[in-house]
Structure formats: structure tokens, C-alpha cells
Amino acid sequence: MHKRIIRKYYKFIFKKKDVAARLDNYLIDKLPKRYTRNIIQKIIILGNVYINKKQIKNKKHLLKSKDRIEIFTLYLNKKEAILKCERLNLSILYEDEYLLIINKQFNLVVHPGTRNQEGTLLNGIKYLLENKAETRIQLKKPYIANRIDKETSGLIMVATDEKIVQNLSKQFSLNWIKKKYIAVVNGIIKEEQINKISKIVISRKKGKSRKKVCFSTFKVIERLRDLTVLKCIISSGRTHQIRVHLKELGYTIFNEKKYSIDKIYYEKIASYKKKIISRIIQDSKFLALHAKSLELIHPIFLKYLQFTSIIPFEIYMLIKIMF
């Protein structure tokens, strides 16, 4: 990736009919699409935005009627890597020109990175959108609206526009989007339901960690031999929230590697079952956590949507063997 210098000048006058009054949101609406939210916020912080001849560095600055906004951009910017199209076998539960709901398989990376430029979920989604016979949507990249770890399977929302992502993010903050997971946990949980609330690290900068309060509910579905099947309901979607909360409660998800050394007690089951479980672990490298159901309001059509997905074969076999 190469660096390039961007030199541009833009001028706007804020009017009462303009919907977005916050500075960064207003500029997202007005500036060309190549200016992402991240770039716009950097332009503001660097002092390249003037309102009524006064320099403004606050991205949350509220605009007033007839405010004169001037943007001077002169900075080094890394040229974005082009997202490659790849044909992948994706399980699509819902699809329109604004939104896709996909049942992601485990062991599939969502976003391309330094080590994974190809073979990710986004590569497959871009191929799907750009090769549709009906629409042939041309995109720089699709937008992932909710987090799912590489090892986790289940429902994931994909938007074709940044404004759709903003709408879904707002629904998350208002707790309108409901997500439910199925987890197979090591050990027997005696309580029928456990509510967990704690602060989880959401970012680390310059040696300092930033935390937010998260709430999770765990309900027992079935108790197996040395394992418990749980329904997990989360009101937020912080990184590894379910995994972290279960660890704090003294439990770990089957085949968990990051937060514990996986431990399964095989004394009570037949030897052939032990071999099948060992084979599942070695071959699939999955985590026994699945995003099973999802409820939301469509950002454009404003209709209630509800989706349910089938658990992966590996989790089904694990439950059947340990029943």
C-alpha cells in the first residue's frame, strides 16, 4: 500500500432542512463517498475544518442554521487495499439491495487482514453482490454490522451502505436487536438461569484499557454428561462477551483455546465416543458457540425480521454423543 497526498477544498452552508446537525454526520452526507467516517473524523481532529472562519476540532460540534463550513484537506493517507472478489459457499438466509443475513460457518475469518487478504467472509460477500444478475451492485466493500469470532458460527448482518450500518448500530444501542446464542459448556451448571453483569475491555490505547458495562443471561437448555447446553442472551455485543462472562463465572465453552485449557472428562462414556469427540476437535477446530437467532427492524422497509439458523453438524454430534 502506498501513501498519497490529498489536496481538496469544500464549502457548505448548513440549512434547517439538513437532517444531520452533528458535524461529522453532516460531512458524511455532503462529502464524496471516498471520505469514510474515519477519514472525516481525522480531518476534523487535525484542524482542517472551519465554521464561520473559526477552527473546529470537535467532531460532535452541533451546527446551526446558516453556519458556513469550510474543509481544507492536506494530509498523508494510506491508499486502501482493494477487496478481492472470491466465490465462496455462503449460506444466505435473507437478501435484498440493502441487507444480507448470512449463517457463517465456523473457522471462517470475517475481515481481511495482514495475514488474511483472501478467503474471508467479506471477499465472498463482495463476489456475491457484484455478480448478481438482477442488480450487479458495485462496492468498495460490504459493511459487517455485528461481530462474530473466526471460531464461532451463526447469523451475521451485512449492509451494502454505511447509513444502513449506522441505523443497525442505533438499534443495538436501543436494544431493539435481539441476539441469542447456543453454547456447549464444560461442566454441569446447577442453576437454571444466571445473569452476569461486568465491565469488559473494548479497546487498548497507549497502555490504557477502556471498558464498558455488559450484561449477559445464561439459561440451561440441557445437562449432558459433564457438559451443559446453554441459551445465551446478550444485550450488547462486546468482543468475546459470552466467552469472557462464562470464564468469570468459572465455566468455559467446549474446545475453548483462548480463555482456558480445554478439559473434558471421559470416564463416564464409551471408548468409541471418546474417539469421535477427539476426531471432531482435531478435524474441525471449532468453538461450541453458535449465533442461533436474530431479531431486528429492517432499516429501510421498517418491518420486523426474525431469523433462526441450524446448529453446525459438529455441535449436534457433540450433544448427541454426550447425551
Rank of each mutant, 00 (worst) to 15 (best):
Q55D: 05
N52I: 05
R22N: 06
N48S: 15
S65E: 12
N58Q: 12
Q55A: 09
L74K: 13
K33L: 03
Y75L: 12
I71T: 02
F72M: 01
L46Q: 13
F72C: 05
K64N: 14
K53P: 01
I43P: 03
G47N: 02
N77V: 13
G47R: 07
I40M: 09
A21M: 07
K54V: 15
I43Q: 09
N52L: 01
V19A: 10
K8T: 13
N38Q: 15
D18Q: 03
L27I: 09
T73I: 14
K78N: 14
I45Q: 11
Y9H: 08
K60F: 11
L63Y: 04
K17T: 12
K64H: 09
F72T: 10
A21F: 01
I51R: 03
K17M: 11
K60C: 09
L62Q: 06
I56R: 01
N38F: 00
K57G: 13
I45G: 06
Y26S: 05
I51Y: 02
L76A: 11
Y10N: 07
K64I: 04
N52V: 07
I44Y: 02
N38T: 15
E70D: 08
A20F: 04
I71K: 02
N25M: 03
A20I: 00
Y35H: 04
L74G: 10
K57I: 15
I40A: 11
D67L: 02
I44W: 01
Y10Q: 10
N25R: 14
I51Q: 00
I40N: 08
R34I: 09
P32T: 10
D18C: 07
G47H: 05
Y75M: 15
I69Y: 00
L63E: 03
L27H: 05
L62P: 02
I45P: 04
L46Y: 12
T36C: 05
E70L: 09
R68W: 05
Y9S: 14
L62A: 07
L46N: 15
R34P: 02
I44V: 07
F14P: 10
I56T: 06
I44L: 08
D29L: 04
I51H: 00
K79W: 00
L63G: 01
R37A: 14
K11S: 14
L74V: 10
Y9T: 13
I44A: 02
L31D: 12
Q55C: 10
I40P: 08
D24C: 07
K16Y: 07
V49E: 02
N52D: 13
Y35Q: 00
L31N: 08
L62T: 11
K57M: 09
K60I: 04
N48M: 11
R37E: 11
K11T: 12
I51T: 04
K11A: 15
K15E: 14
S65I: 12
Y26C: 09
Y50K: 14
R22D: 00
N25K: 14
I40E: 07
G47C: 06
L74P: 00
D29R: 08
K78C: 05
I6F: 00
N48A: 13
K17L: 05
K42C: 12
K30A: 09
D67S: 04
G47P: 06
R34M: 08
I5S: 05
K30H: 08
P32E: 00
I71N: 06
Q55G: 01
N38Y: 08
A20C: 11
P32S: 07
F72D: 11
K59G: 04
I40S: 07
N77E: 15
Q41D: 08
